[in-house]
Design a protein around this nucleic acid. Structure first.
Length: 258
DNA sequence: ATGCCTAATGCAATTAGA
């Protein structure tokens, strides 16, 4: 089973790219972030025509997450991250698909620092940790996939020094991510490719794609029950070079049957 | 410290992304 995460950066403006990628690679499950669309504008019928059932949590202009499944509708288990009833940003949705619990997340960017946006990022991270702990306690196959907006280590940026004043590379951000891994989660791409420099995002400006000046910020974390089934992990980086494309590339894992 | 590029809103210029 192939499970992917893809920050689409506007599902309408990049829908042609999404459809082409789905058709060419046929992932079984897809976590989407940054829909930038309200619930009523979600292209359910078009995705159904492409062979995918979906659940989604939209929002006007910003954020928005969805889970697509090639094998019927995902069975929704949660919408919104627990821990703050006043949080109105659409950044988390969760579903059971083919015996795997899939959490799709879009962690806050956090810039500029310091400030309320960075505070929100760290608070959201703390809530994610609390929820992740509960998922671990269930002792089931879980993947937490999405745009974490964290550069975990120096290896995950072409030029780490240029990010030291960025929210994605703050000690607090890196520590929060490392704490998740320390809980028992496996960073799939890093686990299978311990020494490779792999990017999932390239800024639109400064010719960062042409110069391959990217970041690894989209991650798939596997629970201890799921991790032994990890077979492959990678990035469909050619998608980043297509016309009218997102600034992220689809990132995926292949897991064996239970 | 700021702009570069891109998307959404909505029709100009602002907000946000990372």
């Amino acid at each position: 089973m192939k499970i992917a995460t893809y920050n689409i950066n506007g599902i309408h403006s990049h829908f042609a790219v999404l459809l082409r990628w789905l058709e060419e690679t046929q992932p079984d499950v897809v976590c989407l972030q940054e829909l930038k669309a309200t619930d009523d504008k979600f292209p359910r019928k078009e995705l159904e025509k492409a062979g995918y059932g979906a659940i989604w949590l939209g929002q006007k202009s910003w954020n928005g997450v969805a889970i697509l499944s090639r094998d019927g509708e995902p069975h929704e288990t949660r919408r919104g991250l627990p821990g703050d009833e006043n949080d109105s940003q659409s950044r988390y949705i969760e579903a059971a698909v083919n015996g795997v619990l899939v959490g799709c997340l879009y962690l806050p960017n956090g810039n500029p620092i310091p400030g309320p946006k960075f505070d929100y990022k760290l608070a959201w991270f703390a809530r994610l940790q609390a929820h992740a702990e509960e998922l671990l306690a269930a002792d089931i196959p879980v993947v937490l996939a999405g745009d974490y907006n964290v550069i975990p280590t120096d290896l995950d940026a072409l030029n780490p020094k240029s990010w030291v004043r960025d929210a994605l590379f703050q000690p607090e951000s890196k520590a929060a991510y490392a704490n998740l891994v320390a809980q028992g989660w496996t960073d799939s791409l890093r686990h299978l490719h311990p020494d490779a420099q792999i990017f999932t995002y390239w800024d639109y400006f400064r010719n960062r794609w042409e110069r391959n000046s990217g970041l690894r910020i989209d991650h798939l974390l596997c629970s201890p029950v799921l991790a032994p089934r990890l077979r492959q992990a990678g990035v469909d980086r050619e998608v980043r070079g297509w016309e009218k494309t997102s600034d992220h590339a689809p990132t995926w894992i292949e897991i064996s049957d239970a």
